[in-house]
Each structure stands twice: as structure tokens, then as C-alpha cells.
């Protein structure tokens, strides 16, 4: 973003805004944002460096930005655990299915809510917003999911949080900002409601949909709690639960209690780093591709709405 801004500034012909004060602001702004980038990036680079270093150098506190004593044993170790890959596959499946369901449901709901002529619109918005502030609580939710027979199945993970109210409202605002004339014209040309949604509105909403995909995909990829609650078998867990357990096993020497495994009570620091890297990598690679929609999309909906 920083480079993008400066490039544009350089190309633009000198105008009244290129005062000295503005240039100073640009420089200061660039420095501050660069600092923010460094602060945000450092922990991640450090984790990557740890994952590629050998244990001795990590313990000695020598690993900062560059790997010390380069080795890949930890990567081999983690990738050789079949449960890691099973859980990894689960995460991919859950994320894809859950995102698809969420997008369909959120789009439908938001589109309906964006129509001012809809009767009972206020109540429908109210129902959604109500869940932002109040929830049934842990145990009732658990009882609900269990009695619906969704426990220990993919549905327990992908259904309960399918509609995120915040995303819903953003999307509703976006749809409201679309010119009604377009839809009227489409109706005149003989499209029914579904045709308008599918052929006119959705093609114009790629930006917001891409943004929503990103929002949902990231949150489902990172989520572990629903899976932990409703799944009882480790071959169903997403990789986040695997990772969490690995880290907790490494830090919770005391809670391990009783018989603790002496040869590896502490999952080695490298091992943790490797798992963290492998877990965050895919979602990280998706980011840059959706990010351009992300920037324009959210602002578009929010400002005009």
C-alpha cells in the first residue's frame, strides 16, 4: 500500500496539493507505516526463522530474523505425522464448505434486507442483530447441536456460524448502494427476482463477494472452538486444534501431571514453529489475490451505505 501511494504521487502532475506540507506528510506517513509493517512482520519472520533453525540456537536465543544452523528435520518430523495431514485436509474441507454455505446464505439474506419495500424488514434485521449481542450460551448450543444429530460431523462446524451478522450488514449496505434503476431496467426487460439477483446484481458485486470470501475463509481457517466443542474424534479435528494441543502440551508441563512423557514433555520449539508456519501459510498466500477487492470493496459498501 505504501509503495502504491508514492508511485501514484510521483506520476501525478504537480498540482496545488503538492505543497511542501503535503510532501512532508507523505514522508512521515511512509515512515510510520513502514514501522508498522516491520512490527507486524517481525514475529512472523521470527517464527519462520525458528522453524528453519536447529534447537540449540533457539535455546541460546540466537535466532532473530535469519535461521541459525539451517535444518529441515522439524519439517520432516511434522509432515511425517499422518494425523497432521488428516487434520490439515479437514481444515481445507471445512473452510471450503463453510465458506460456500456462508456466502450463499449471507448473500441471500443481505439482498432481501436491502430492499426497502420488504414488509417486516425491521424485524428481520432485528433478529439478526439480536444475535450479535445475545447468545444462547455454551451448554444450550451444545445440547441443540447434539439433538440435531450434527455432533461428530462436518455440519457441526460449518452450519452454526454460517451467517456472521457484521458481514451481513456490510453486504446489505453494499446492495443498498447499487442503483435501483439497474434492477428496474432489468425487470422491464423481463427478468424475475432471481434473474435480477443472479444476472445483474451478483456480477456487479464481485468485489464485496470476494471480500466476504476472504473474511469467512480466514475466520473458518483459524477457528478451533466449534470443532473442539462438537467433535470427539481426533481424525475429525481441524489442524488448528492439533496446533493448539501441540503448543499447550509444550507449555503446560504442570497440567500434564501424572505420567508425563519425559523424552518430549516439551514439544521442541522448532516443532511448534514449523506447525505454525505450515498452518498459516495457505491462508497467507490467498490474501494478496483478494486484497485488491478487499480494499475497494469494504469501503465502497460502508461509505455509500
Amino acid at each position: 500500500m505504501v509503495t502504491l501511494g508514492t508511485k501514484r504521487a510521483a506520476r501525478r502532475p504537480r498540482g496545488p496539493r503538492d505543497t511542501r506540507g503535503y510532501r512532508v506528510f507523505q514522508v512521515v506517513n511512509g515512515i510510520i507505516l513502514t514501522a508498522v509493517v516491520i512490527v507486524t512482520l517481525y514475529p512472523f519472520v521470527n517464527i519462520v526463522a525458528r522453524s528453519l533453525s536447529d534447537e540449540a540456537n533457539i535455546i541460546a536465543g540466537k535466532v532473530n530474523l535469519l535461521p541459525q544452523g539451517f535444518n529441515l528435520t522439524a519439517y520432516k518430523l511434522v509432515t511425517s505425522d499422518p494425523m497432521f495431514w488428516t487434520n490439515y485436509r479437514n481444515t481445507v474441507v471445512y473452510t471450503v464448505v463453510a465458506t460456500a454455505i456462508s456466502i450463499v446464505l449471507t448473500t441471500c439474506y443481505a439482498y432481501v434486507l436491502s430492499k426497502p419495500q420488504l414488509k417486516g424488514r425491521g424485524a428481520l434485521v432485528g433478529i439478526a442483530v439480536f444475535t450479535m449481542f445475545f447468545s444462547g450460551g455454551l451448554i444450550p448450543n451444545y445440547v441443540l447441536i447434539t439433538s440435531l444429530g450434527m455432533k461428530n460431523s462436518i455440519w457441526a462446524v460449518v452450519i452454526p456460524n454460517a451467517i456472521n451478522v457484521f458481514n451481513l450488514l456490510v453486504m446489505k449496505a453494499f446492495f443498498e448502494s447499487l442503483p435501483t434503476e439497474l434492477e428496474e431496467a432489468a425487470a422491464v426487460d423481463g427478468l424475475n427476482t432471481y434473474g435480477i439477483l443472479l444476472r445483474i446484481v451478483l456480477p456487479l458485486s464481485k468485489a464485496i463477494i470476494a471480500t466476504m470470501v476472504l473474511f469467512y475463509a480466514v475466520s473458518f481457517w483459524n477457528s478451533w472452538f466449534t470443532a473442539f466443542l462438537y467433535l470427539d474424534r481426533q481424525e475429525l479435528f481441524p489442524v488448528t486444534v492439533y496446533l493448539r494441543n501441540l503448543i499447550a502440551g509444550a507449555t503446560g508441563a504442570q497440567s500434564a501431571g501424572g505420567v508425563a512423557d519425559a523424552d518430549a514433555v516439551q514439544a521442541a520449539a522448532t516443532l511448534q514453529a514449523v506447525t505454525i508456519v505450515l498452518t498459516t501459510l495457505p491462508i497467507l498466500t490467498v490474501y494478496p489475490f483478494i486484497q485488491r477487492y478487499f480494499v475497494s470493496g469494504v469501503m465502497l459498501g460502508a461509505v455509500k451505505g
Binding site: F228, D232, Q234, R244, N245, A248, G249, S255
Partner: peptide, 10 residues
């Protein structure tokens, strides 16, 4: 099976 990390909660 409950992960050790959150055994008490589950």
C-alpha cells in the same frame, strides 16, 4: 478424545 489443551473446559 479431548485435546489436552482444553480438557477441563470440555
Amino acid at each position: 478424545a479431548v485435546p489436552l489443551s482444553d480438557y477441563e473446559q470440555k
